[in-house]
Design a protein around this nucleic acid. Sequence first.
DNA 1: AACAATAACTAAACCGATTTAGTTATAAAG
DNA 2: CTTTATAACTAAATCGGTTTAGTTATTGTT
Lengths: 339, 339
Amino acid sequence: MKRLFLKDIAKELNVSKTTVSLVLNNKGDENKISQDTQQRILAYAKEHNYVPNQLARGLSRGKSETIGLIIPNISDVFYARIAGFIERQAKGLGYTVIFSSSYEDPQKEGELIKSMLDRQVDGLIVASTQKNQSEIDALKNINFPFVLIDRHYPDRETDYVIVDNFEGTKKATEHLIDQGRNKIGFVTLKPGLEVMQQRLVGYQDALINAGIKPDKNHVSEVSRENFMEEMGLEIKKLVESSSSVDAIVFSTHYLAAAGLRELKRLNVEVPKEVAVVSFDELNAFDLTDPPITSITQPASEIGRQAVDILMDKMEGKTNGSIERILETKLTIRKSCGVA
Amino acid sequence: MKRLFLKDIAKELNVSKTTVSLVLNNKGDENKISQDTQQRILAYAKEHNYVPNQLARGLSRGKSETIGLIIPNISDVFYARIAGFIERQAKGLGYTVIFSSSYEDPQKEGELIKSMLDRQVDGLIVASTQKNQSEIDALKNINFPFVLIDRHYPDRETDYVIVDNFEGTKKATEHLIDQGRNKIGFVTLKPGLEVMQQRLVGYQDALINAGIKPDKNHVSEVSRENFMEEMGLEIKKLVESSSSVDAIVFSTHYLAAAGLRELKRLNVEVPKEVAVVSFDELNAFDLTDPPITSITQPASEIGRQAVDILMDKMEGKTNGSIERILETKLTIRKSCGVA
DNA sequence: AACAATAACTAAACCGATTTAGTTATAAAG
DNA sequence: CTTTATAACTAAATCGGTTTAGTTATTGTT
């Protein structure tokens, strides 16, 4: 299995490297290379399973046919799913995906963006920490193709595919209100992500529209690093205070799972005493006790559209920005109180 | 943000490209370059955030500092978790990870292995379909560094990190027997993966050791492509036949989730009528109704050890094969019938 | 016969870095 | 004074492919 090089083919067939390269890159006709020579080259390359060194190709052409994907954490169900769809779509178009997890660290994310550029990726798909405005600006300044997913920079004109977080929690909260709930709590992450803010505002908007005054004590914030430890205290506050809640909307699936664990620990009956809704879901949310109502995101659409937009961007087929805001879907299960 | 090249530094500082390259690669001292010149170069490179073109580096050095990861499906919780640990461990050692999903297709896997080699990855970590013996042999023949995870080729001497599937299901089945279950079913995938076979044999061994004759009618096989559709019929057979089961061991987490959905649909009470154990688990198995007893695998250890072994392999620090068989852990929850 | 066009290739530069094989000035030793 | 060693660099080849800029033989036209 000695490595076969393009120059070896040239030598074997008594033609130049150039001729072999042109033929293998479908440029034989336009360069007037005879059909006989083309056929000999193609046959030899096929028979010997020749495949070019992609590093050399990338260096030579200035394109690596690689896409960089930067997400918060590949182990997170939601991002793993998106990554899978992105991989599939990109692969179908001849691109390989290099992935990296930022762990929501803006500095790390900045380094990852640089590292991807050093590897000459042809484009980037980023679910950003939203704290790298200057990195994003730098990418824009050099017209480097990228698409944001899940989170975008509202003050910047960029390509992105996100979901309507505001409408998502708004609809869910409306649903809870329709079910007769009027003391609705909201558990979210400490400020930092615009996405979480949108989810909060959507929840608040539904309350206001229903004539319910948003109560500061019904909104709990936990830190991403210690949400498990902090969840106990927050749930206790929400369900045991003088103004205790009769429903809770969680801004992420992992907060919902942690919250449900605490509710069970406190022997709070769900949904009888407190209804529960989760933004996004884990694989087995239909099997939990009770099955959890979720605001689900179209991971496959996000992934597919991000790749398609990026391809157009890389081929210079678009000018201006493409902004896609997809709808979430409220998947009703027992946790919100429906029969 | 014009791209800065090594030759630009050389020109600015009036030294040769060679000098710059040697200094930036910590070879200044051994090549007797003066401290003054070294300092000027390091300062300039740092001040201008110079980073080398990794494609050129890889081509030149014959090392790309990239690891290829081939797994069945990045969207699967178990593999996403392993991928996350692999990424973290590899990154800490200066390596970038390129991932690809084989979707259990041996032909696709063979192509992915080739594709990874074309990209000059320095090593491979593969959770193999187990049907590419010749590709594995070819890798061995050229002394290409790779580590198998999750599945290995029993007839071949390779480096691998796997769990003890046999002991996993054996212990779980023993536990069910200790709980008084004696008609224990087993739901698995149609033959193809040695891993599934080991899980089946472990289950059977526990039965035999307890003086229970394995009953062919208690073993159900579903296809990977259509397990959801097939699960209904198989569960019905297991719980409604004249020799119905009082427990079921599922050979994967997704089969367990699908099986539990069917048991619920048939109004079978778990664990009262039929106990349930799953090999591996989904994130919310502690919240399901009932919480599911699982044979869990140490994803972080698998990922970490695979990377460490691969590093040693790439650095030529080992000869012969390193075979690691890690223990599973039985996580008892309500589904197996414990109070 | 001379000139122009074209088929069918080719050599060499290029990509950006690293490695190999020198070169040169200076100092020390014989 | 001559020879040797060494500090401190350098030019060019190399990596494997692609692109640029030719070269040459043949044919057709004037």
